[in-house]
Design a protein around this nucleic acid. Structure first.
Length: 500
RNA sequence: GCCGCAUUCGUCUAGAGGCCCAGGACACCGCCCUCUCAAGGCGGAGAUCACCGGUUCGAAUCCGGUAUGCGGUACCA
């Protein structure tokens, strides 16, 4: 058998959608697993809704996920690559026109002069009679003379495809045999608008035929449309590809995942710091499983194990919690240098947004990693975790300073004692294991719980109650800043007592 | 309305006639570890396998029906 050729065919009418990314991924996995070719084609015939900005978002998003296509357009107008160029439908208009001409010549299609008003009236009547909406076929039997007459009146016809009669059946790779009676297709459907622009059902088939697509892998929402495509393939005299309809990704209420009810833009997930390894891993597991208990898998491992026949039939609810868990798994698996590189853009964004006052060096960041990675659910959470390291002044609620079991006076006393202990030991060298024994001894000597003392210090130097381990934090801050922040906390407590 | 597709713990799933009074993971709860938060370890709770009927010695797995859900039904993609 010849190598498969598959494609992802997004339309740039919105940002890269999670569902589109998943479909792209499954096509990619299938292509790589079988040694086939993965093609990207832009379906931009809906000029009213398409935009170059969306196109860029989609291509960038796919690139960021690591889904490289073998044939297709490059970002924003750059050169295409592949033997079947162009890969933007708006640049393929002559091809559709020629195909339409052939169908017309063969009388597989005919011009339709019905006006939107007439069609609307038909629909109303059918609705009233409780009949399924369907084109009545008014123009199906027009003679050549009648067509010419209407043309002469200046009416611009749309082109309709004759669906004929019978049953269309196909063997879907994930769903098995599907049979649909042509009478349920809604009658002869329009393939070219009256303004001459081709419609989706038509372009998709012309292109899949022209690009020699062997397997059409797409969302289940296209299942009911497949007979139309098959009819078109036949009329065009082209062998039908195999079809595989993937289950839908769902909102929590089990409807098709939508912008209204879920976060659907891939760019938003990327911006939050979900990394491609996790995103790919998670998306692959929506509707597919290895059949073993393996779950944390690299894209290479997934490629190796992927089979279309193992894909599920039922829809899958998108579960952000599980994605976050996988993201944590993958963040912890990254090499330190890699993690530092990937953290950079997030820190730059934090700086730009004023969440931090300056950027750490690579060395600083690297030394922080051991205590940071296991606390990082998303790269974007970095400032939230240790942003206190890169700000001049801490801004916190003074009430946080006082541990639950302590009062203000005890806290003040504790911080003063801790300050001098740290000043004494830190003057020699500033290392984590230097402080723990003396500070523990301090707590013990005063009859304090170490947790309380440590918590007071923690809040004083970080402004937060949840941080990486205290001593690593102190070292990261440095001798001077630790003392400064302790002094400032003591001053705050002084102020509080004097005020009272 | 009509057509199509689907249905295993809250969620993602394993399961292809006996290994299943259903396994794993996320989330949840508890314990351990512990200076907080995580991470990790251990344990717990959680599914009469949508329902009804049939086939079979035996069904989550096969067949039929029902219900529910979703998708499609455009001169959108």
């Amino acid at each position: 058998m010849t190598a498969p050729r598959v494609r992802i065919a997004p339309s740039p009418t919105g940002p890269l959608h999670i569902g589109t990314a998943r479909t792209a991924l499954f096509n990619y996995l299938f292509a790589r697993h079988t040694g086939g070719t993965f093609i990207l084609r832009l379906e931009d015939t809906d000029q009213a809704r398409s935009s170059i900005a969306y196109e860029k978002d989609i291509l960038d998003g796919l690139h960021q996920l690591g889904l490289r296509w073998d044939e297709g357009p490059e970002v924003a107008g750059d050169a295409s690559r592949g033997a079947f160029a162009p890969y933007r439908q708006m640049e393929r208009l002559p091809i559709y026109a020629a195909a339409a001409e052939r169908l017309l010549a063969a009388d597989a299609a005919y011009p339709c002069f019905c006006t939107p008003e007439m069609l609307e009236a038909d629909r109303k009547a059918q609705e009233a009679a409780k009949l399924p909406p369907k084109y009545v076929g008014r123009c199906a039997t027009l003679t050549l003379e009648e067509r010419a007459e209407r043309q002469a009146e200046g009416r611009r016809p749309a082109l309709r495809f004759r669906v004929g009669t019978g049953v269309v059946a196909f063997d879907d790779i994930v769903r098995g045999r599907v049979e649909i009676d042509v009478s349920n297709l809604g009658g002869d459907f329009v393939i070219v608008r009256s303004d001459g622009s081709p419609l989706y059902h038509f372009t998709v088939v012309v292109d899949d035929a022209a690009m020699e697509i062997s397997h059409v892998i797409r969302g289940e929402d296209h299942l009911s449309n497949t007979p139309k495509h098959i009819l078109l393939f036949r009329a065009l005299g082209h062998p039908e590809p195999q079809f595989a309809h993937l289950p839908l990704i769902l909102n929590p209420d089990r409807t098709k995942m939508s912008k209204r009810k879920s976060q659907t833009a891939m760019a938003d997930y990327l911006a939050e710091g979900f990394i491609r390894e996790a995103l790919v891993n998670y998306l692959a597991l929506l509707g597919w499983a290895t059949g073993t208990e393996e779950e944390v898998l690299s894209i290479e491992e997934i490629v190796e194990r992927f089979e279309l026949t193992d894909v599920h039939k039922g829809g899958a609810v998108f579960d952000r919690e599980r994605l976050e868990w996988l993201n944590g798994q993958w963040i912890r698996r990254l090499e330190p240098d890699d993690l530092v590189d990937r953290l950079r853009p997030f820190l730059e964004a934090d700086l730009a947004a004023g969440r931090i006052g300056w950027l750490p060096t690579d060395g600083e960041l690297t030394s922080l990693l051991p205590v940071v990675t296991e606390r990082l659910p998303r790269l974007g959470a970095i400032a939230d975790l240790v942003g206190f390291l890169w700000v001049r002044e801490l801004d916190y609620d003074p009430a946080l300073l006082v541990p639950k079991r302590w009062d203000g006076a005890t806290t003040r006393e504790g911080l003063i004692a801790a300050r001098s202990t740290i000043a004494d030991t830190g003057a020699v060298s500033f290392e984590a294991d230097q402080f723990e024994p003396p500070l523990r001894a301090l707590a013990e000597g005063r009859g304090w719980k170490v947790g309380d003392l440590f918590m007071a210090i923690r809040v004083a130097v970080t402004g937060r109650t949840a941080t990486p381990p205290l001593f690593d934090t102190l070292v990261a801050l440095g001798f001077e800043r630790v003392l400064d922040r302790l002094d400032r906390a003591i001053a705050i407590l002084d102020g509080a007592t004097t005020a009272r």
